[in-house]
Amino acid sequence: MRQLFFLSIFLLVLFGCKKAEAISEEAYAIQTVQMPAKAENVAYDKKADPSSPQPPPPPRIDQQIEQKIIKEATLKFETDNLESSFSQIQKAVSASKARIINDSEGKDFATVFRNLTIKVPSQNFDRFINDVSKGVSYFEVKNISAEDVTEQYIDLTSRLKTKKKLEERYLEILKKANKVSEILEIEEQISTIREEIEAKEGQLKYLESRVSESTVTIEFYKTIPEKEGVKISYGSKLWNAVKSGFYTLSDLLISLLSAWPFVILFVVLAYFIRKRFKRRKKE
């Protein structure tokens, strides 16, 4: 009995060692096999394991559209010296790389004035207004406006691209056309589209020119001082009235002398008319 007991224990130990050895060999084989890394598995593992590092998000592309602003200004102020104010404006024009496109001056019953229309690069608009405003105590008129035409600019650009693509399609169709009637019809369509493209391009250029250059209108004037402190006597007023009447009479005589052919013709006509009336009375 004792021998059978030791024999059974020996067999159990022997089978246990073989099983442990088989398990260790299987574990070693599993560890040495590398599974192919697939994108799907990686994604799945990363979702399953929140502690794993996440890949950087794709760069976000922001399409920033540059604003299209039309700036305009109207300025009016009084000055003691027109030439000095004009010289200051000229310096501001030169510093801001602007240009004077209109310059007019005049005089009314109480003031001497000067009007300027100036085109200023939009990026120098604020600097120009500040330079002109130096030394001005107050403005009678100071109106500055800014109109956002970005939407209009985008709309024109989009329509222009669409028309150009349509023109390209018609040109491709024209290459494949065989009949004269088809060719003429397609050419007519291309001509119409070309006119629309040129019109859109003209509108776009005009809009760009207004955006790139701001318009500034400046009016500055000087008040004419009234003559005071000189009192005229009554006799002087009468003498001035006599002289004024004499000058008026002289002007009238000169006017009559300049019209002497008409005077002679009138005299001749009056003479013949009078002579004819005398003959009728005698008869």
Rank of each mutant, 00 (worst) to 15 (best):
Q88P: 00
E26L: 14
R276G: 08
S137V: 06
Y247K: 14
K97A: 00
L156Y: 09
S145C: 03
K119T: 15
Q34T: 13
P50M: 12
F262H: 06
R274G: 12
K176I: 03
I100V: 12
F139R: 12
N41Q: 08
F15A: 04
K237H: 06
Q54W: 00
F5I: 14
D251K: 15
S244A: 15
S181A: 14
N240A: 07
T32W: 05
P58R: 04
R2S: 12
D80G: 12
P261S: 05
L265Q: 08
K119Y: 15
A98S: 09
V132G: 00
V141H: 05
E182K: 09
S250H: 10
K281E: 09
E188P: 00
A22E: 15
Q64A: 09
N124R: 06
R280C: 01
A110M: 05
S209I: 03
V263C: 13
K231T: 12
R159V: 03
R280Q: 06
K163A: 05
L82D: 00
S94M: 06
E198I: 15
V230Q: 10
K18I: 09
I70Q: 02
K68I: 06
V132S: 02
D108S: 13
V13S: 15
S87A: 11
K176H: 09
I23Q: 14
P225A: 07
L166P: 00
K176F: 04
D80P: 03
A22V: 10
T117C: 00
K281I: 08
S24V: 01
K165Q: 13
D126Q: 08
A199H: 10
V33R: 08
S191F: 07
